[in-house]
Design a protein around this nucleic acid. Sequence first.
DNA 1: CTGAATCCGATTCGATACTG
DNA 2: CAGTATCGAATCGGATTCAG
Lengths: 131, 131
Amino acid sequence: MAARPGAHVCGIDAAMTVIGGKWKVLILWALHDGTRRFGELRRLVPGVTEKVLASHLRELENDGIVRREVHDEVPPRVEYSLTPAGVALNTALAPLSAWGRDHAMTAPAGRRIHGVTLIPRPPGRLVVVSG
Amino acid sequence: MAARPGAHVCGIDAAMTVIGGKWKVLILWALHDGTRRFGELRRLVPGVTEKVLASHLRELENDGIVRREVHDEVPPRVEYSLTPAGVALNTALAPLSAWGRDHAMTAPAGRRIHGVTLIPRPPGRLVVVSG
DNA sequence: CTGAATCCGATTCGATACTG
DNA sequence: CAGTATCGAATCGGATTCAG
């Protein structure tokens, strides 16, 4: 999101920036119950490529959401877990998840956003109110 | 979130798809307290272009979040308001907003200039968090 | 006043191949 | 195992112009 100086902006902006990536919330969800290795995350987030998973994890780490621990072993072992901020973010995401479950089925459109196809339904109609 | 038509991993997916646009949450926020005309929204969401505002509004309408009322008058008058689903979505967004306020300003490398905290985002963009 | 149409750059995402 | 490098494709967003 670009800067909008002087705007009345709420914390939503910051949150959306942090979780704006295509796979961010799925990564957070995969980490909600403990520590995961890179390979585990790759399996828990089906469809994500190594490149994108790595870059998203790096961004989440830079944003203070995810902690990255490198164990100097052979074979290499890197473990990811949520920071306290990450846990709080996950908690804050819960109502949104509930909203999605409740309303997604009534959300129309074979629309694609960020590569996702929404569940189809009759197109939104124009409401005309004659003055 | 790859091409698995009709299937969302969890409710979060659906919600993120709906609010994934760059200005979506700001539009929702601008509508939280009543009906707004197109021109009002343009002023309430500083920086958005007409094209993007119009397209985002159309997407929100198709997703059942926003209601669009066209008054057949001269000059034209079009009013936007939240549907019940939109109101619920706004409510579900509240914890995320709180999280943003609580955590974004302590994000690493965040610096305060002119009373606001600027959060660097790739590449070279800034998010302004009121404060 | 509302907003559709077009052009175009910026950003993101994905596939493949390669490395310590 | 855990990434990185490179390339290309798709998408998104911005500026301008035009229309009812």
